[in-house]
Design a binder for these strands. Structure first.
Lengths: 337, 337
DNA sequence: CTGTTAGCGCATTCAA
DNA sequence: TTGAATGCGCTAACAG
């Protein structure tokens, strides 16, 4: 590719003034057809492309802020549920949302590098991921506020739930339903929330309870982990899953093995994703849409008033009993915190 | 709010030079603490916010294009499935993706107004929605390319499927499974694809086949429509749904009425959303991720080479037989087109 | 450590 | 219809 051309280059090339170039650029009708053709030709020949920043500066257009949302967006519909209110909230605050689908650690760094190098965002929303203290310092130096969803970071406003308590809640629910031997299906260990739920589970099921960690979060992985769990201990009659998708896989595997749910084995998930009601999965519901709402409000506030701090918030978890667990004496929804 | 301030304003206010202001703005360490405080104070008092365009112009940073994706993003996970590859594809092409969640007609106009007024995007991706010819002309005058997903528009490259054929395919599948009396659950009439599927259905089920149109696309609406359908004609033994979510609702309603699926009533959906395999729903699969891939490639190409046209493309539909339909003599996946 | 000066690329007067 | 000159708000040398 050629080096960036300017209207001067193409004006010279076409033998006209820059004003004329600008005119054809903006589709002004006050340009002779002859001239227009010459200019258009020159633009094509030089592979010219207008500089956005210059245009906006010149036109004095509004200076709408942009926030970059970094999330492993498409790994689970969890983020979908968060993005919806996030997008709406930001839109209402007249802020543009730039989606950054983070699929790997390098992805994340690439996006962040860009943001600081080009100052291409006035705010950053982190979904389920952290940033190093150096990076944080850099962003704060540049005055780019950051808020986090589901990933507590020192000095960064965060919205989260008590995952430790949530894991315990799930385990206790199955125990209340009569489960004697609990197993746990975890997720990738790097995910802090997953680890906390696991710890919570342990706190009630004991340290010797069998645990399987799925490498990825999908029904297939959940099925595989379930098989491993049963192999490890055939007497298991309660499976706590770190996430709904995994739980769905557990259900599939159990059906395949002709184990009745919840009679033989109870299953509980985490999140309460869309369609889980249809599937009848008992789960611990996360307030996903509130996550998005909060993030939108928080980042908008930080951008509007950099000087006033916004406080982190911990939201409540709700146990949603459905068909995959036994309800001892009419268990109802139970609010935690 | 106050009128936009510049660094000159705050420089004057703080009694320093603009360079110093710029320095504190960028977190340069070469500023006396005393001076810095004065500048920061002035900035706060005047509610100063830097002009992004000017910064970028001055720094000569890369001129990354942005494309605005206008979709009813969060109404169905259908768009989620499309956005994923769209985001990845654009990211690979070094293009920013700005999400525009269009919830209403006015929303759409607002976003488009902005784009033309502020030239805030170098490309537009339309998801399941059209634009008027005047708007189209305006965009083309400004040299902002547009591509469309699932909504054929004259003069605009579009990726789509043959919905007419798809509707017929679904109906024929149920007939092949032995259905004698077919009913149809449609969606909002304004949606062209929905209407086409309905027409396709009609072409095989006949004009007198009962049809219910759900006002919104959700399991609840599907259940309601199913009830109405059965009320209209209790002998119905095959339900073709314009969309999977509606089909899920149909399944629920049928279960509630103790009608066996597929023995008493067969059900087929459209899309093949995530988890439909788990639910065992027979459906007509749309190549959603290919939609996103195509859109990313198409808009990137248009932006890179405005002079070369890109052709519309029609993708294939696949029938996915599962547990909610009867397979006469081992029906296999059938590719169309 | 701080101020002065000169562009960045473009839209837009104002004359011609 | 066209061109020359001016400024958008900011960063980055360059002096002091």
């Amino acid at each position: 590719m050629s080096a960036p051309q300017t209207i001067y280059d193409i004006a010279t090339r076409a033998g006209v003034g820059i004003a004329t170039v600008s005119r054809v650029l903006n589709g002004s009708s006050k340009v002779g057809p002859q001239t227009r053709r010459r200019v258009e030709l020159a633009m094509r020949e030089l592979d010219y492309r207008p500089n956005r920043a210059a245009r906006r500066l010149a036109t004095g257009g509004p200076n709408r802020p942009r926030v970059a949302a970094l999330m492993p967006f498409f790994s689970a519909s969890f983020y979908y549920a968060i993005s919806r209110p996030l997008a709406s909230g930001l839109s209402a605050a007249d802020i543009d949302l730039v989606l950054c689908n983070v699929a790997s650690r390098t992805d994340k760094q690439r996006f962040l590098d860009r943001i600081v190098a080009e100052r291409s965002a006035e705010g950053v929303v982190l979904g389920s991921m952290g940033i190093g203290p150096d990076r944080h310092a850099e962003l704060r130096r540049l005055g780019i506020p950051v808020v986090s969803i589901e990933f507590p970071l020192p000095g960064i406003p965060t919205v989260s739930v008590d995952n430790l308590k949530g894991g315990a809640l799930a385990a206790r629910h199955l125990v209340a339903g009569g489960a004697k031997r609990l197993g746990f299906i975890g997720g990738p260990v790097l995910a802090i929330p997953f680890r906390l739920r696991e710890d919570g589970f342990r706190s009630v099921a004991g340290d010797d309870a069998p645990i399987e960690r799925a490498a990825e979060v999908s029904p297939a992985a959940g099925a595989k982990a379930t098989a491993a769990l049963i192999q490890a201990d055939p007497t298991i009659d309660g499976v706590v899953c770190v996430n709904d998708l995994l739980a769905v896989g557990a259900l599939e595997e159990l059906a395949r093995r002709k184990r009745r749910v919840p009679e033989d084995v109870q299953v509980i998930g985490f999140d309460d994703l869309p369609l889980m009601d249809v599937l009848g999965l008992t789960t611990v519901r996360q307030p996903m849409s509130e996550f998005g709402d909060w993030a939108a409000r928080a980042i908008a506030a930080r951008i509007a008033q950099p000087s006033v701090a916004v406080a982190s918030q911990e939201l409540g978890l709700t146990l949603i009993p459905r068909r995959t667990s036994r309800t001892a004496a009419k268990t109802r929804k139970r609010q935690v915190r």
